[in-house]
């Protein structure tokens, strides 16, 4: 129907349509992003998947991320945070102390000693509590429980405090969390040794929880009956850092 004089004067009713189109585009965007991230759905069953040890060649983990963000260092797209100075360990000088009242034993491990335990590799998404994430990380290391079990845990083994080599940072897991298949001491990411900013030579990886639980530059693992609060937890962050609803026995 031809527009009357009043319609010509008023123009076209675009405002509400534009608003609805924008909302529709937003809803479609969320649906597309959800579809794209569907493989990442973190539940106790699939937060990490085991992959054959050594299956990741150094170039497989590369992503064309140059120039994306000044804090993202290619190729792994991580932003590197540190609350203290970044330690500069050499393989020769580094040692990992495993001790505490929850163990009848105790040991000091060189990197070669650690690598002599059964190796595992897991593929997971690394999630930072500030919102960024890196998908398809393949970490190689040994299970925390294998290290604990090699040191004769006793009835006092309830909690584990992980100490970073910067002398400042710590964080904790319950013994139940640390016994997960996904809790590993990792020395390799995507087929390459960890870089210094990433926690060289060894860091904790527990992808069920946000990154601040994943202590870098590990120097000491203390198995104990009491629960300590980690560095950020002492400053009000959640001790429960699960990225999904935690298992009831967590």
């Amino acid at each position: 129907m031809p527009a009357g004089p009043e319609d010509v004067f008023r123009g076209r009713p675009i405002g509400r349509r534009l608003f609805i189109v924008l909302l529709g585009a937003g809803a479609a965007g969320i649906a597309l992003a959800k579809h794209a991230y569907a493989g990442d759905d973190a539940t106790p069953g699939n937060v990490a998947t085991s992959v054959p040890v050594g299956s990741m060649t150094p170039d497989e983990g590369r992503e064309p991320s140059e120039g994306v963000h000044p804090n993202i260092v290619p190729p792994e797209r991580f932003r590197y945070y540190s609350v203290g100075d970044i330690p500069d360990f050499t393989e020769r000088a580094w040692r990992l102390t495993v001790d505490g009242a929850g163990l009848d034993g105790g040991m000091e491990l060189r990197l070669a000693d650690l690598k002599a335990f059964p190796n595992v590799a897991i593929r997971s998404t690394f999630r930072c509590v500030t919102g960024w994430r890196v998908r398809n990380c393949v970490w190689r290391g040994v299970r925390v429980r294998d290290i604990v079990d090699a040191n004769s845990p006793n009835a006092k083994a309830k909690h584990i405090t992980f100490y970073a080599g910067d002398g400042v940072y710590t964080d904790t897991l319950t013994i139940g969390q640390a016994r997960s298949d996904h809790a590993i001491l990792a020395w390799e990411l995507n087929g390459r040794p960890l870089i210094r900013e990433q926690g060289y030579p060894v860091r904790l990886i527990y992808p069920d929880m946000y990154g601040y639980k994943n202590v870098k530059w590990l120097r000491r693992i203390e198995v104990k009956p009491v629960h300590d609060l980690g560095f950020w937890e002492q400053r009000g962050w959640d001790d429960n850092a699960y990225v999904y609803t935690p298992p009831s026995n967590g």
Binding site: I30, A36, R133, Y244
Partner: peptide
């Protein structure tokens, strides 16, 4: 689901 909260 993590995918929904990550999309959001």
């Amino acid at each position: 689901p993590t995918s929904l909260s990550e999309a959001a």
